[in-house]
Nucleic acid binder design. Structure first.
Length: 455
RNA sequence: GAGGUUGUAGCUCAGUCGGUUAGAGCGCUAGAUUGUGGUUCUAGAGGUCGCGGGUUCGAGACCCGUCUCCCUCCCCA
């Protein structure tokens, strides 16, 4: 017999944790629905052909692959072993656990394009899996809450994502946050302008770290990634770009020669304007040229949300992707979406002590079980309580009252109904308030109306 | 995938230089109290010292391997 253990990077969620998590899920779901998103669920695992190549090399490596069932090695020959693990993987595994919710959604859209009302807005709340090394705020199984719109390139979607975030996070009690926004087109333009056409990928990865490691280290990394000193020299505006009111004019001057970049800047300006018209006066949005994000499929706006004054990575991320369905043979469907990480939001809320008001869905009243006659009577009042919408339970065993009350105490049950021979004779039941210790004798109807009023 | 670190009772942790039967607090169980929880008192149960190997007369302690926690990098929610 072996000691039980959890797989690395996974967790159980007990009742108290689930109460908090459900509060988060419910809050997010309500907001998603209010913005017109419809629910979708997709399978936990997909064919690897769907998942591979969508997240970059790094992502492919972090995919959990599922070993083929049965005799997966039967057809292997000696040469397969010598070719290394990558070619071997394709021979012994053809399915993998989903890595995010966006790619499965794109697959769903591609497969159902004829039947979906376009533009199609869906939300999806499901776990995803990544085979990376666990750390603070990083797990191998975690929940994402995604909302995406496909089938329109209207910047209203981007603006609505900003609004959505400003609804959800305060509703959770997270008030101090920043929605960082950038546009992939600007990054593409920068790569062009500095004479490093097509290298925005590595450029992004490096400058994304600016606020973390500083200019010198970024320059160092750019050199390592094959940028010339001349190109890097032209990046100065990035390092000096002021975060003041009009960063866009400054940027437009610098990137005037790049039509792509100008398009990106114009898109962002439009988003800013629309957010304002939508009535968000003090938007916590911030343009950040250094925001890049590694996922390779983004083509327009890029979002990232940071909870301030908490040592946890971003709690949300997203962006626009123009051609995700294209890889499934359906080009021309642009999409944009946002993904919230429940597990990180949970950690943030825990750290900021924001769970005090989380409602309990636990038992409201417990009926004691004193003897056979009282038990039978308890059976008869239980359905009455439940039909009145009161969460209730009858203690199943005839054990000492001390033990029953102790159980109620540990489950934080606020009321206990005591039934013994005395109560059976008089028809008046003893209702005990577990917090104050007070007891009163009442008819069951009065208990029900009292408990209904209390909740 | 690279580097560092941790692991002793359900939990938090002591455990001296390698030396008798591995301890504490909290929690748990039972009783004090056969109709009353939280407080108190008493008693009790609970250990493959992460796992595997090695050194030694002797290993919780030292060495090697491995797994795991946490942290840094990479990357990300």
């Amino acid at each position: 017999m072996s000691k039980p253990s959890l797989a690395r990077g996974t967790r159980d969620f007990g009742p108290e944790q689930m109460a908090k998590r459900n509060f988060i899920f419910d809050t997010i779901r309500r907001s998603f629905q209010r913005y017109g998103f419809l629910p979708l669920e997709t399978p936990a695992f997909e064919n690897l052909s769907v998942l591979m190549g969508k997240y970059g090399d790094e992502g492919d490596q972090l995919l959990f692959k599922i070993l083929n069932s049965g005799d997966f090695s039967g057809k292997l020959v000696a040469q397969d072993w010598q070719e290394g693990y990558k070619p071997l993987t394709t021979k012994i595994s053809e399915k993998g656990l989903r890595y995010d919710l966006t790619v499965p959604f794109a697959r769903y859209v591609a497969m159902n394009r004829g039947t979906l009302p376009m533009p199609f807005k869906r939300y999806q709340i499901q776990p995803v899996w990544r085979a990376d090394r666990p750390q603070r705020g990083r797990y191998r199984e975690f929940y994402q809450c995604d909302a995406d719109v496909v089938g329109t390139d209207s910047l209203l979607c981007e603006a609505e994502i900003v609004l959505l975030l400003h609804d959800i996070l305060p509703a959770l009690g997270i008030i101090d946050f920043t929605v960082k926004i950038n546009n992939r087109k600007i990054l593409t333009g920068i790569a062009d302008i500095i004479g490093a056409h097509g290298m925005e990928g590595p450029l992004c990865v490096a400058i994304d770290k600016l606020d973390k490691i500083g200019k010198d280290k970024v320059v160092e990394e750019l050199l390592e990634r094959g940028f010339s000193g001349e190109s890097i020299g032209q990046l100065d505006p990035i390092f000096n770009l002021s975060n003041e009111d009009e960063p866009f004019t400054e940027l437009s001057d610098w990137l005037a020669e790049s039509p792509v970049a100008l398009k990106g800047i114009q898109e962002l300006e439009e988003v800013w304007a629309m957010v304002k018209v939508l009535g968000l006066e003090h938007a916590k949005i911030e343009f950040d040229v250094t925001l890049a994000r590694g996922l390779s499929y983004y083509t327009g706006a890029i979002f990232e949300v940071k909870a301030n004054n908490v040592q946890i990575g971003s709690i949300s991320g997203g962006g626009r992707y123009d051609n995700l369905t294209g890889t499934f043979g359906v080009p021309g469907i642009s999409g944009v979406g946002i993904s919230l990480g429940v597990d990180r939001i949970y950690d943030v809320m825990e750290e900021l002590n924001l769970f005090k008001d989380a409602q309990s869905t636990g038992t409201q009243v417990m009926v004691s079980n004193f003897d056979e006659a009282a038990f039978t009577f308890g059976l008869s009042i239980l359905p009455k309580l439940r039909q009145a919408g009161i969460n209730s339970e009858l203690y199943p065993d005839q054990v000492k009252l001390k033990k029953q009350l102790d159980y109620a105490d540990r489950k934080n049950i606020p009321f206990v109904i005591l039934i013994g021979s005395e109560e059976l004779n008089s028809g008046l039941l003893t209702l005990k308030n577990m917090k104050s210790g007070e007891q009163q004798k009442l008819k069951i109807e009065d208990i029900i109306s009292l408990l209904t009023a209390a909740s």
